[in-house]
Amino acid sequence: MQIFVKTLTGKTITLEVEPSDTIENVKAKIQDKEGIPPDQQRLIFAGKQLEDGRTLSDYNIQKDSTLHLVLR
């Protein structure tokens, strides 16, 4: 499925993911596309910070959802 990741600069990254993918996995995909190390990434969805060990389906993230990427 496709999800979107919006950065603070207003750029939107499109990712191909599975509901069973972990947040860690998603961060690795963002690193592949953007070169941002996962340890600098914070992903936010519906006002919640997403934890590495959980999956997209744990957070009820569905296709065409938009996550927000904050760098630390």
Results as ranks from 00 to 15, higher is better:
residue 55 T to K: 06
residue 32 D to E: 06
residue 41 Q to H: 14
residue 34 E to L: 15
residue 47 G to I: 02
residue 35 G to H: 12
residue 37 P to D: 11
residue 59 Y to V: 05
residue 28 A to G: 08
residue 28 A to T: 13
residue 9 T to A: 04
residue 26 V to F: 02
residue 55 T to L: 14
residue 46 A to Q: 06
residue 69 L to P: 00
residue 45 F to A: 08
residue 9 T to K: 10
residue 28 A to R: 13
residue 22 T to R: 10
residue 34 E to I: 08
residue 14 T to H: 13
residue 25 N to H: 07
residue 9 T to V: 05
residue 32 D to G: 10
residue 1 M to G: 09
residue 19 P to F: 12
residue 46 A to M: 03
residue 58 D to E: 03
residue 56 L to K: 00
residue 7 T to M: 11
residue 65 S to E: 07
residue 64 D to V: 02
residue 32 D to W: 13
residue 17 V to T: 04
residue 3 I to S: 00
residue 63 K to V: 14
residue 20 S to A: 10
residue 69 L to W: 02
residue 63 K to D: 02
residue 35 G to E: 11
residue 53 G to Q: 05
residue 37 P to Q: 05
residue 32 D to P: 03
residue 68 H to D: 07
residue 38 P to E: 09
residue 24 E to I: 03
residue 33 K to G: 10
residue 11 K to R: 14
residue 69 L to S: 01
residue 1 M to Q: 06
residue 17 V to Q: 07
residue 58 D to I: 13
residue 65 S to A: 13
residue 46 A to Y: 13
residue 14 T to K: 08
residue 4 F to E: 09
residue 15 L to M: 11
residue 30 I to S: 01
residue 54 R to P: 09
residue 8 L to Q: 03
residue 63 K to A: 09
residue 25 N to W: 07
residue 54 R to Y: 10
residue 43 L to N: 00
residue 26 V to K: 00
residue 55 T to E: 03
residue 53 G to R: 04
residue 70 V to T: 12
residue 8 L to I: 14
residue 6 K to M: 05
residue 50 L to P: 01
residue 61 I to M: 10
residue 65 S to H: 04
residue 49 Q to S: 15
residue 48 K to R: 13
residue 20 S to H: 09
residue 15 L to R: 00
residue 54 R to G: 05
residue 60 N to V: 11
residue 50 L to S: 01
residue 70 V to W: 06
residue 5 V to I: 14
residue 36 I to E: 06
residue 6 K to G: 12
residue 26 V to Y: 00
residue 67 L to H: 01
residue 14 T to S: 14
residue 27 K to M: 04
residue 35 G to M: 05
residue 28 A to K: 07
residue 29 K to F: 11
residue 37 P to W: 08
residue 32 D to H: 12
residue 11 K to Y: 11
residue 51 E to M: 09
residue 46 A to R: 05
residue 65 S to K: 02
residue 38 P to G: 06
residue 32 D to L: 06
residue 62 Q to P: 11
residue 65 S to I: 03
residue 44 I to Y: 08
residue 23 I to W: 01
residue 29 K to L: 13
residue 34 E to P: 02
residue 4 F to P: 02
residue 29 K to Q: 04
residue 26 V to G: 00
residue 9 T to S: 06
residue 66 T to R: 03
residue 68 H to Y: 02
residue 49 Q to M: 09
residue 31 Q to E: 14
residue 5 V to Y: 02
residue 52 D to M: 04
residue 64 D to E: 09
residue 54 R to K: 07
residue 51 E to N: 04
residue 49 Q to L: 11
residue 38 P to A: 12
residue 28 A to N: 11
residue 2 Q to V: 10
residue 4 F to I: 07
residue 34 E to R: 03
residue 23 I to G: 10
residue 3 I to E: 00
residue 38 P to R: 05
residue 28 A to V: 15
residue 25 N to E: 15
residue 60 N to K: 03
residue 6 K to V: 08
residue 70 V to L: 09
residue 12 T to P: 06
residue 35 G to L: 13
residue 55 T to F: 14
residue 6 K to I: 04
residue 70 V to R: 15
residue 69 L to K: 00
residue 2 Q to P: 06
residue 37 P to R: 06
residue 14 T to V: 14
residue 61 I to A: 02
residue 6 K to P: 01
residue 39 D to R: 15
residue 35 G to Y: 09
residue 20 S to D: 14
residue 60 N to T: 14
residue 63 K to Y: 13
residue 39 D to A: 05
residue 64 D to W: 06
residue 42 R to W: 03
residue 30 I to W: 01
residue 19 P to I: 14
residue 16 E to T: 08
residue 51 E to R: 08
residue 58 D to L: 15
residue 52 D to R: 03
residue 11 K to H: 03
residue 62 Q to K: 10
residue 27 K to F: 12
residue 32 D to Q: 11
residue 1 M to K: 02
residue 18 E to Q: 04
residue 35 G to S: 13
residue 72 R to E: 05
residue 51 E to W: 12
residue 47 G to V: 02
residue 37 P to I: 08
residue 60 N to G: 11
residue 23 I to Q: 14
residue 24 E to P: 08
residue 32 D to M: 04
residue 15 L to S: 01
residue 48 K to F: 04
residue 22 T to F: 12
residue 15 L to V: 03
residue 55 T to M: 15
residue 10 G to A: 04
residue 61 I to G: 00
residue 37 P to E: 10
residue 12 T to W: 06
residue 43 L to G: 00
residue 2 Q to A: 09
residue 66 T to Q: 11
residue 30 I to L: 08
residue 11 K to G: 05
residue 59 Y to I: 15
residue 65 S to D: 12
residue 26 V to D: 00
residue 54 R to W: 13
residue 35 G to P: 02
residue 50 L to Q: 01
residue 30 I to R: 00
residue 4 F to A: 05
residue 43 L to F: 15
residue 35 G to N: 09
residue 57 S to D: 05
residue 64 D to K: 06
residue 7 T to Y: 12
residue 2 Q to S: 13
residue 67 L to K: 01
residue 29 K to M: 15
residue 50 L to W: 01
residue 20 S to Y: 15
residue 71 L to T: 14
residue 44 I to F: 07
residue 17 V to E: 01
residue 29 K to G: 11
residue 15 L to A: 02
residue 63 K to Q: 08
residue 61 I to P: 01
residue 47 G to N: 04
residue 13 I to S: 15
residue 20 S to R: 02
residue 2 Q to T: 11
residue 60 N to P: 10
residue 41 Q to R: 02
residue 61 I to D: 00
residue 56 L to Q: 00
residue 3 I to P: 00
residue 36 I to Q: 02
residue 15 L to H: 01
residue 63 K to N: 08
residue 36 I to D: 06
residue 71 L to K: 10
residue 61 I to S: 01
residue 63 K to I: 09
residue 14 T to N: 04
residue 26 V to T: 15
residue 23 I to Y: 02
residue 47 G to K: 08
residue 25 N to A: 14
residue 31 Q to K: 05
residue 41 Q to D: 01
residue 47 G to A: 11
residue 43 L to T: 01
residue 2 Q to N: 02
residue 46 A to W: 09
residue 10 G to L: 06
residue 39 D to G: 15
residue 16 E to P: 14
residue 45 F to V: 12
residue 63 K to P: 08
residue 23 I to F: 15
residue 37 P to N: 07
residue 71 L to E: 12
residue 48 K to H: 15
residue 47 G to R: 03
residue 41 Q to Y: 04
residue 51 E to Q: 03
residue 36 I to H: 13
residue 70 V to I: 09
residue 53 G to L: 11
residue 7 T to W: 12
residue 1 M to A: 03
residue 18 E to K: 14
residue 11 K to V: 13
residue 34 E to Q: 08
residue 61 I to W: 01
residue 45 F to H: 11
residue 8 L to G: 15
residue 37 P to F: 10
residue 53 G to S: 07
residue 31 Q to I: 03
residue 23 I to K: 01
residue 18 E to S: 12
residue 70 V to D: 12
residue 11 K to W: 10
residue 57 S to R: 09
residue 29 K to P: 00
residue 14 T to I: 10
residue 12 T to S: 05
residue 38 P to M: 15
residue 1 M to Y: 06
residue 62 Q to V: 13
residue 51 E to K: 09
residue 65 S to L: 08
residue 56 L to F: 05
residue 67 L to A: 01
residue 34 E to F: 04
residue 53 G to N: 06
residue 9 T to N: 03
residue 36 I to M: 15
residue 37 P to Y: 03
residue 60 N to A: 05
residue 7 T to N: 08
residue 17 V to W: 02
residue 67 L to N: 01
residue 34 E to W: 07
residue 20 S to N: 09
residue 68 H to T: 05
residue 72 R to I: 12
residue 1 M to L: 11
residue 20 S to W: 06
residue 63 K to M: 15
residue 28 A to M: 06
residue 56 L to A: 14
residue 69 L to A: 08
residue 44 I to S: 15
residue 40 Q to T: 15
residue 13 I to L: 08
residue 20 S to L: 14
residue 29 K to R: 13
residue 21 D to S: 03
residue 63 K to E: 14
residue 41 Q to S: 14
residue 67 L to W: 02
residue 2 Q to Y: 05
residue 50 L to I: 14
residue 55 T to G: 04
residue 69 L to I: 04
residue 10 G to W: 13
residue 72 R to H: 07
residue 45 F to W: 08
residue 68 H to A: 02
residue 5 V to N: 00
residue 70 V to Y: 05
residue 38 P to W: 13
residue 29 K to H: 07
residue 18 E to V: 07
residue 35 G to Q: 10
residue 40 Q to P: 03
